[in-house]
Each structure stands twice: as C-alpha cells, then as structure tokens.
Design a protein around this nucleic acid. Structure first.
Lengths: 334, 334
DNA sequence: TTACAATATGGTATCGGTACCATAGTGGTG
DNA sequence: CACCACTATGGTACCGATACCATATTGTAA
C-alpha cells in the first residue's frame, strides 16, 4: 500500500504538499496539484486514516453496542443512529452483545482501545461498571433504552412503565383479571419497568397482584415459548390474557399457543410491548409501539453534541412516548 | 487518556518497560512488573490500538459487508464469521449496505483507509470495480454468497442453481405447470442462478418457459408483496404455484395471499429459497435451506488463511450444498 | 528601488507504542 | 579471574499524516 511519501516522490514534491492537495488546504499551484493528483491516481493511493486519527486524537467513529441485531427493533434503531451520525460525518461501528455481559465488556474495552470517539450502549446488565470504565477514559457515552441506576450519564429511553400500564389497563377494561406477564431478564431495566407498570395498573384497579403470574425470562422467542408453556402447564384455570414483554417473546407465545391448539383471541388474549417484526399473515396483535428510529436518532444526537463539545453540561434524560395500538388479539370478557 | 509514557513516569521506568509488562515479552523483574501494574491500574490505562496498528501495519480487524442485517440469514452468517475470527483473535466490523452500491462503495473505501486486514463482501451489484479497488491495496478479499463474473477472487456460496432446480422439480412432480418465479434484483448473481435452475427444471420436463412468469424485484418483503400482487392481477388463470426467490419475498407473498383471501396450499402452492426467519405460527413452507452459518464460517476461514499468509495460491471457490425441506405449502395437482 | 503581503513549497517534530540496538549487573564455568 | 550467557532496563528511530515554522518567489504599492 503506497503512502503519502510514495505519492510525493512520484510527483516530485514534499509529502506535506500532497497532504495539502488531499485536504484542500493552504496554497497549491494548479500545476503542482495536477501532478499530485495524477500520482495519486496512478498509485491508487488512499490516505491511511489510522495515522490521521493518531495525530488528531479523533477517529470520527462512534460505536453502537446493542443486544440482538436479529431483532428489527435494534436494526431500526441502528438506522436512526446512522442517519444522525452521517449528518456530522461520523461512522458507526455496530457491536452485537447477544445480551451477554462478557461480550459487552470485551467490545467496550476494544472500542476504547481503538479510540472510538463515543459509545452508545444498550446495557446487557444493570451494573455501572462499564459506564465508569468508559467515563474513566473521558469518552462520551449515552445509555440507550435501559436506564441504569445510580449513574450520572445521558439516557434515552421509552416510557416502559407508562406503556406497560396502558396495555394492562386495556386488558383490565376488557374484563381480564388473570393476566400473566412474560417479561425479559429480571436484571434489565425495561423488564423491571414493564413489570412496574403492570403492577401499577392492577393495584389502581384494586386487583390483587398474583406474583406467581409474573415471569422473567429473556427477550427472545425460545424464552417466550418456554414461559408460555410453563404458564399453560402450571396455572389452572388458565390466565385469560398474556402480556408479552417484547416482540420476540410474543412470537414465542404465539408458537406455544399454536402448538397447544388454542386460538387468539377466542381462547386467550395477548398484548405485546413492541410491534411484531413481520406482518405474517397480518398485524393483529394489540401492542404498545415504541419508535426505535427516534430512540437511535436522539441518542446519537446527544452523543454527538458531547463529542463536538457543543454540550458539556449535566447528564440529560430523554423519555420518548409510546403508542397504544389496539388490534384484534384481545377478547372482551363479560 | 493516559499514555504509556504517563504510566512509565508514574512507575519510574522507561515506556518500553511498560510495553514489556503489557505484552509479556522480554525480561522484567517481579518488583518492576508490580510497580508498573499498580501504575496501570491507578491511571486506568488502556493501550492505544491505533498506534500499535500503525506500527505493525496490522489491525486484527476484518470487515463483513452485507446487504441487509434485518434478514436473519445474514445475521446467522455473521455469527459464523465471528466464530471463525475469534479463533484467530480477529474482530469483525459489520457494515450494512441495504443493497445499495453507493453505500457499499463508501464502506469499502472507508475500510481500506482504516487498514482493515481483510474484507468479506456480499456484492450489491455484479461489477468488479470494488474487488479491483480492494485488490489494488493488496488487501485480501472473499466474495460471499454471490459470485462475480470475470474476477480472480475467492468465493464462497451456496448451490443456488441446484437448489432452484430441485424446488422447481418438486413443484413439477406435484403436477404444477404454471409456476411464477419471484426473484431478487436481476443484477445479483443469486437471482440469475435461481432463475437458471428454475428454467433448467422446466426445460428438462419439456414444459415451455413462459418468460412473463419470471419477475425480478428485490430481496425484501415489500417487493415480494408487490410482485405477488402483480401476478394475481395480470395472470388469468392464476399460476398454480409461486417460487419465492428468498425468505423475505416469501413473507411478502404470504402477506399478499392473505389480503387476497387465498389459502395455502388449497388455492395456491408456494416454495421458497431460504427458510423463513420466524416460525409463526409454525414452519409450513416447503423450502430449500442454505447454511448461512457455514457460509460465514468458511468464508472467514478462507479470508484468514490469506491474511495470516497460510495460503497464497490461486483463487478458491467453495460451493455449499443446499437442503430441500418438504413441508405443507404445496398441493398435488391431478 | 525598497518594503511587504500574497503565494508556493519544504523541514522537522509529533501522535502512542514498540523493534532494534546498547548498556550494565549478576552468576556460573573452565 | 577472564569470559560468556542470562537478566534487566533504557535510548532512538519508526509507522503515516500533518501542525507549525521557515524559506523562497512573485506581485504591487510607496
């Protein structure tokens, strides 16, 4: 791979002159510029960004550390991040943790070592260790989707508690009293918040909270399937409604329902936090929908404002509203 | 952010001594090692990988440039790449092109400038320009999933032609004669190969090829939906079977079928290249399944063998077999 | 004609980590 | 006791691009 010196030699100029041509700075005669450009083309020269970054202590890269790229929720969020970043000429590195704190830790360390200018983190646990590690390096960080307790850090997330409250309220209004909650991992903030909203709605309606109806599993389809099966096997009579903690859990629930020969909503009602990824055969699930794109966009903007130095004040918290979409997965109970 | 010199100063040693402690090379007395380690911990020192990479002309990063991370096919492939890479202590950068040649071009350029050690490319078009650009920089590259014509380059892909042949053959054996093919973008190799396999099966069974039944769109759900709708509106009588060029096209077709009030397989039969991402409500589609994990694993291994210098011979081509999975989406026609 | 700004180009040092070579002390062997 | 291997540590230069300062040439106003 040719360097700026190779180009300089070929064009018969000093390296710094080539640098001026590339970056369009300083004074260059047209004739010299032409010679340099010819040399660049002939050698297929591409500037080495590593050395540039080393010099400037700036890589123009931010990282997005998410838990599961197979979930369209996160890929849509990614798009929001990318759009905000390209506005400011930043590139995005995507890291997939599979909800594993260990993978997460490795990625963050790697990113810091590679001098990433900022990090958007979707925490796989609710410890503050990683955030401290990032802040120790004076690297800007924004927590996305899942607030961390006891931390001074920018956060962007949806109103999980409120959304869960509204979904539960909706079920209660339809006459449901036995509602099982099938949530994600217990140590994840959104699981806790959704459980809190669920409890709050029950309490406000003077319905006793049956703790045995609250399940914590994982935000994926197999876990949703397993939890639903457990519910069907252990609760007689069956709960009249299931509350899926996220879209993939809903998919698992639907799979279990199908295998058990049940019908929605005739035999059982379902609501879900987050919309289903694929409308197959057609959207029919009553859900609370977030705006993953907006989450990504806003989070990236907060991060970039810190990187560029445009903002350097106290930590900010952005809470995005959610939308209740009533479809056909809930039956009215008399 | 502290540097190796800060650590050295604090420990009262030379920078090179700190380097030896970090990398566990050369001779170090236990006492010095301890002092250095204390200093590293106190300063929260993390080595700067940029400078290391600059020095060694090696970043230990490879890139995977794919067309659509929302499709589980590619995320599964990604996992194969990650697993092969971590065996050799390489990290993977994931780049999403959305099938757009322009985004693809930008990413490849960026990756080359960042001194990526090697690139796995899923071409968004069938031009050789990008491969040449990469090879000009003497960076190893492996083409994944979609062979490029007239190029000397390592390729790993599935047997698209053979798979399409078998799916079509299966439909013909069930008595189908009017089979519409709803493929991806025409300039993508897999689209062409799947069309070739489709034609071959028809020809061998002495069924005239009706070119108006061959559609080229895009490998996503909206395109599958649109193509299916076009088929339903323009062909009377309706074809008895539809061949989906990939899983997302199949999803779009199912959506269109649902909206038109048709039933599978009673009113129309469907087969798909690639399995559906989500078993909702249950796998019922007859498909030809690839092994995206194996594709990723093998491609990464080819790439890494070139990066490490273990192999530097002629370009290799790896063709992985596909598996026909017969389920319940095809009706027998008398 | 002098003085000075504008134009055009180059030399050197630097970012952070490490290869290479140099230096110096210690221990063991013939 | 001379010699050498082993142990322990440091100085300098380098990877590639560029900021900063220096230099040289040209143009133009006083």
């Amino acid at each position: 791979m040719p360097t700026i010196r190779d180009v300089a030699r070929r064009a018969g100029v000093a390296p710094i002159t080539v640098s001026r041509v590339i970056n369009n700075t300083g004074y260059i005669s047209d004739e010299t510029r032409q010679r340099v450009e010819v040399a660049i083309a002939e050698l297929h020269y591409l500037p080495n960004t590593l050395s540039r970054s080393l010099r400037f202590k700036k890589t123009n890269m931010i990282a997005l550390v998410v838990s599961d790229i197979t979930n369209p929720f996160w890929t849509t969020l990614t798009r929001g991040v990318e759009d905000a970043s390209s506005e400011e000429d930043f590139n995005v590195i995507l890291c997939n943790t599979d909800e594993k704190p260990e993978k997460q830790h490795n990625y963050v360390k790697l990113l810091l070592q590679r001098q990433t200018d900022g990090i958007l983190l979707v925490p796989a646990d609710n410890t503050t260790e990683l955030v401290e590690m990032i802040q120790n390096q004076n690297v800007p960080v924004v927590i996305v989707d899942r607030p961390l307790p006891n931390t001074q850090v920018d956060v962007v997330h949806s109103d999980s508690t409120g959304g869960a409250y509204r979904l539960t309220q909706h079920l209660i209004e339809q006459g449901h009293r036995q509602i099982a909650l099938l949530a994600g991992r217990q140590e994840i903030a959104t699981s806790q918040e959704r459980a809190a909203g669920y409890r709050q709605a029950l309490v406000e309606n003077k319905i006793p909270v049956d703790e045995s109806l609250i399940y914590f599993g994982s935000y994926n389809q197999p876990s949703g399937y397993a939890m639903a099966m457990t519910v069907f096997n252990h609760h007689h009579p069956r709960p009249t409604a299931l509350f899926a903690g996220n879209n993939f859990i809903a998919l698992g629930i639907l799979q279990a329902i199908y295998e058990c020969g049940l019908r929605v909503p005739e035999d059982i009602s379902i609501v879900s936090f987050d919309d289903l990824p694929y409308s197959l055969p057609q959207p029919f699930l009553t859900v609370v929908a977030q705006s993953p794109y907006q989450l990504g966009l806003q989070a990236a903007r907060l991060l970039l404002s810190r990187i560029t130095g445009y903002y350097n004040g106290a930590p900010r918290e952005v809470v995005l509203p959610v939308e209740l979409i009533v479809r056909d997965s809930c039956r009215k109970i008399e």
